[in-house]
Design a protein around this nucleic acid. Structure first.
Length: 277
DNA sequence: CCCCAGCCCTGGTCGC
DNA sequence: TGCGACCAGGGCTGGG
């Protein structure tokens, strides 16, 4: 479940080793990785491309090539990009692609559950790609304000938790950071999104940024099998205020954290600090 | 348009 | 020890 902080952690670890390198050989082992385009087409197109930057947009890793093409890597649930390649990756069933760089090192794409995707965009297609998907503002950028969040939530009857998982509100917020943000903001996750008052929307905007910034500082959350590109675990799981903590005391008030469901996802909150429903 | 259920996918856990 | 049921969830599709 790499969300914005996990993807940003991977991006920042990859950028120094990939920037300026040429892709010499691209081996795509999982035919589903590049759907709908066949993997051999994407692999052939990628070979001899030179990386000019490694960026991130929401939960997408964006590899920028000098040709103007972009490779969009979405890790979904269990995807990861490792560089340099860890020992023994040749025998790892879950390695879905290997890219040899012109310095002789390998980049390994690893994904147990195979939800992750690679999409190669031609020059100039990136903006349209994100526009079609109506990807919202970067939550750590200037465009993400209480007003922009309020606009995204306005009139919506869905639980605010579900509205946060919708990438139109803020790009990159997933299940973990949505719960953490709601706790910081003292907002009940099942509150209809459109019913939040101005003060709550402002608190939620701040809570989202607080949770994401903490996640980046801690190099992501290593729950289940997430690892950074360097293979190291993040430490954000030690900072969880509510996520996965049902039955444990809320650090603000001592009340036991409760688990419920919202937007089809496991959702944790403090029934005392986050009143309502 | 909104909202939600179902789908994709595999590994880990739980009950029997 | 084995086996089946169930759960984890990001983003997309399809139905109401």
């Amino acid at each position: 479940m790499p969300e914005l902080p996990e993807v940003e952690t991977i991006r920042s670890a990859l950028a120094p080793g990939l920037t300026g390198r040429k892709l010499e050989r691209v081996e795509i082992l999982d035919p589903r990785l590049t759907r709908p385009e066949p993997p051999e087409l994407v692999a052939a197109a990628l070979e001899r491309e030179r990386v000019s930057a490694v960026r991130r947009r929401g939960k997408y890793l964006v590899v920028v090539f000098e040709s103007g093409r972009h490779l969009l890597v979405h890790l979904r649930m269990t995807g990861n990009v490792l560089h340099p390649a860890p020992d023994g990756h040749e025998n790892d069933l879950h390695v879905r692609a290997v890219v040899r760089l012109d310095d002789g090192s390998d980049v390994v794409y690893h994904d147990v559950r195979r939800f992750g995707t690679w999409e190669l965009l031609e020059p100039g297609e990136l903006k349209e790609y994100f526009a079609v998907r109506r990807l919202g503002p970067e939550p750590l950028g200037r465009a993400f304000t209480a007003a922009s969040l309020g606009g995204a939530l306005e009139g919506r009857r869905a639980p605010v938790k579900a509205a946060l998982l919708d990438q139109r509100a803020a790009a990159g917020v997933g299940n973990i950071y949505a719960d953490e943000a709601l706790w910081y903001a003292r907002v009940h996750p099942l509150t209809p999104a459109g019913e939040l008052d101005e003060e709550q929307v402002a608190a939620l905007r701040d809570g989202i940024r607080k949770a994401l910034r903490l996640g980046i500082r801690r190099q992501g959350a290593s729950v289940r099998n997430y690892r950074g590109a360097d293979g190291l675990r993040g430490r954000m799981q030690d900072e969880f205020r509510v996520y996965g903590r049902d039955g444990e005391p809320c650090e603000r008030c001592g009340t036991a954290i409760v688990k419920t469901r919202a937007g089809g996802r496991g959702t944790w909150y403090c029934p005392s600090c986050q009143p309502g429903d």
